[in-house]
Design a protein around this nucleic acid. Structure first.
Lengths: 229, 229
DNA sequence: ACCTGAACACCGTTCAAGT
DNA sequence: ACCTGAACACCGTTCAAGT
């Protein structure tokens, strides 16, 4: 089953404005570029997952030959690096002047949400370098914690703790969400083995669906531990 | 460069006991089994990394045809699942009767250490199911936290928070550790961009090498936040 | 400067068959 | 019950060549 592409030029009635736009070969694809490759890679990853991204499929979507990609991009790893970072841009909070805790929570929840919108990003993260968008978030975190009064000796540990928490939570959430088949299988295995894991069976550790709530609450605990004084 | 296999029967002088053992074809490999496959898969992963594990290479090491593996194992995903869980067995603390905090810290540090001994396990985790050894650790965590007096409503959140922290820390540590080339490249990129990330450049966030210390300290902060009362 | 097709050295897995 | 080889439908990337 091939993924459907919505064609913006599809059946839309002609409007006058279109007469005024420059007429460049209406049917031909725009020229290849690093940006187009990254955007299309993200589309493909969204549609087909990590294993679905193939240099050949990517070239197909772009209407080019496979080897043309290699002029703009080093190799497949490079595509992964670029796709991952492209998905992690942070535009900041809507209203300014919150307290430091609110600022941190907002940025980290946005981080998690951005990755969950592209579940492949979570499973990709472990083997990738830190791109500019990731570094910007770490920079912001660092500034905010310093201003909040966290001791200099503790700031880096605090940043990594928050990073660890967000990455662990997001990766876990994304992989638990893979398919209904997987969920059913996991559930079945657990009940089958319930006598070996009585405590987590009783507390329904693996069946709790309030991921967002758990994330926020756990983050609260961690910030309690990190708060100055 | 092929990985060397140590042959247990190598140059060892013959001992009398060997005369007493049943004589079955001395040179032939033992029969294929799920266990042998998993053990060999872990060896191969240790030696070549995630991308190095190939059904064909695995069969080579086992001295069998590729398709023979498929009698014992569903597919490659299955091999990954089994290899991952096999590496996460927990044997408990050496001396008993610590306080709950010591018990939790010991188990989580052992968890991290086990994964870092097999760096591929960290990058594999995001897409894998929870095997029995992982579930046992969660069970232990649950029991310990309950006994420590963490409120029932908070136990699951506490478990996932600790899980998130350990997974995030371990995955990050394992991927930063990949190669000297990568490190050099990252360092270079950061200094090149130092004017864009002044705070984390000044605090040397990415250059701090005390991973073990940071892990322990951050875990302490998190446990502070999670402690009852 | 940018794009291409053919070719190479691989993959995982199906299938029909062997013992 | 356990193992096998041939074949299929793919991969990523090198290379030498085109414009």
């Amino acid at each position: 089953m091939a993924a459907k592409r919505s064609d913006a030029r599809g059946k839309r009635p002609q409007r006058i404005s279109e007469w005024l736009q420059p007429v460049h070969e209406p049917r031909s694809e725009p020229p290849l570029s690093r940006d187009r490759i990254v955007v299309t890679a993200v589309e493909l990853l969204d549609a087909q997952g990590v294993d679905g991204l193939t240099m050949r499929r990517l070239a197909d979507r772009l209407g080019s030959g496979v080897m043309s990609l290699y002029w703009h991009v080093d190799n497949k790893e490079d595509v992964f690096d670029l796709a991952l970072d492209s998905v992690l841009e942070y535009r900041g909070p809507q209203q300014i002047a919150q307290d430091w805790r609110g600022e941190v929570v907002h940025m980290l929840e946005d981080w998690r949400a951005s990755m969950l919108r592209h579940p492949w990003s979570a499973s990709l993260l472990p083997r990738r370098a830190l791109g500019p968008n990731i570094l910007s978030r770490l920079e912001l975190l660092s500034k905010t914690l310093s201003r909040a009064g966290v001791a200099d000796a503790d700031v880096n540990v605090a940043i990594w703790s928050l990073w660890n928490y967000v990455m662990g939570a997001t990766i876990t959430r994304a992989s638990f969400d893979l398919s209904d088949d997987d969920r059913a299988a996991a559930q079945q295995r657990l009940t089958r083995l319930s006598e070996r894991y009585p405590t987590i069976e009783r507390s329904r550790l693996l069946l709790d669906n309030d991921w967002d709530g758990a994330f926020r609450k756990g983050l609260g605990f961690l910030l309690d531990g990190l708060s100055p004084r």
